[in-house]
Design a protein around this nucleic acid. Structure first.
Lengths: 189, 189
DNA sequence: CGAGAATTTGATAGGGCTCAACCTAAGTGG
DNA sequence: CCACTTAGGTTGAGCCCTATCAAATTCTCG
């Protein structure tokens, strides 16, 4: 799924993607208003949990309370990285960085096969996450292929040169704070 | 103060400004690593509060615990707005939006005089918050002046046409969640 | 097979960057 | 008190990255 916002001209800016297992709205209980929309980018199974229930669980179980806070911090961290990405990297690098992040997050969710994964996003949607147009997204993608970093078949992405992609994107996994992730899922990253 | 990050080429991206009274690092107790630097943009008085102490206070005083969470949510909200700003608005609008935010945040901190305020930032630093160069920041500023939205004397900003600036920037205060702010400080915004 | 959606490619325009110079204001030191 | 220095603001010219417009091609799926 994705969290996004539409501006006055109709242009969409994606604020984050949510992979299976993620919360979408965990810490909005304090807000009178939220400033974004949430939508699916593919088939999704959604569970609704009232904020009351989350708070109740937090009171009863400090360890889970801590986990909830950790999740919120993680989202913050990703958002910060996106701002940095959009604000400071040229578009091919920006795309490379986004793909690195998605690979790792999907991998941590058990949804990849080595460096090969299914990405349910159109190039238009990728562009909306980076603040660039469809056409330019396509050309940036072409660039990454030309550099021999990855190949595409439909929406299957195959990162043929992971170290190269990471280096190209100046990608540093640490902001995803995977320290508590099942090690077998993220080894070699 | 500001939170920022420097990329491989030496380019700086500011992630947020912190006005007097703000925390800079409230919710990083859960992290093994943080991905940014913090620096001053002018004279500053800084108080250090250990995370342990914050947690202790939170346990003893649920109302303050709630406030701490609210502060974190607020930062999240601002970060999100910045991503939207940088990702989707042309540079003069982007600058206008940033100035709207700074005016209101400084005003809520009691540091403005009507629509007139002192902004301790160079144009270079403003540019770093928007992902554009010094020169272009200067030209965008010129644009805002030409539109009759504000005037500058040194670093004193005078927003001569607040409704105009707000409209120009497509600025909607709600993301700053000022509902609990002393009303006299923010009336007429 | 046909139709709509997504990807790809080309040509052109424009926003923002780079390089460079100039100007102003505010120190600094003799 | 003034020459000198330095940081920041302003302006101009040319180029490059990205947007826009448009059309062709490929893919997907009923």
């Amino acid at each position: 799924m994705r969290r996004y916002r539409t501006n006055v001209d109709g242009k969409v800016q994606t604020l984050n993607f949510h992979v299976p297992g993620d919360f979408c709205n965990l810490h909005t209980n304090l807000a009178q208003s939220i400033e974004y929309s949430i939508g699916t980018v593919g088939p999704a199974v959604i569970a609704y949990i009232p904020h009351d229930r989350i708070e109740e669980i937090s009171r009863q179980n400090p360890r889970l309370a801590r986990t909830f806070n950790w999740l919120a911090f993680n989202e913050f961290s990703i958002l910060q990285e996106w701002l940095f990405n959009v604000g400071s990297r040229p578009s091919p690098q920006r795309l490379a960085h986004l793909l690195c992040e998605l690979l790792i997050r999907l991998r941590a969710a058990g949804l990849t096969d080595g460096h090969h994964f299914y990405l349910p996003l159109s190039q238009a949607q990728l562009g909306e996450a980076m603040g660039i147009t469809i056409v330019h997204t396509n050309r940036s993608m072409g660039q990454l292929r030309k550099e021999g970093l990855l190949t595409l078949e439909g929406r299957k992405v195959d990162v043929t040169n992971w170290p190269g992609l990471k280096k190209y994107a100046d990608f540093d996994v640490r902001y995803l704070h995977l320290d508590n992730t099942e090690p077998s899922l993220i080894k070699g990253l």
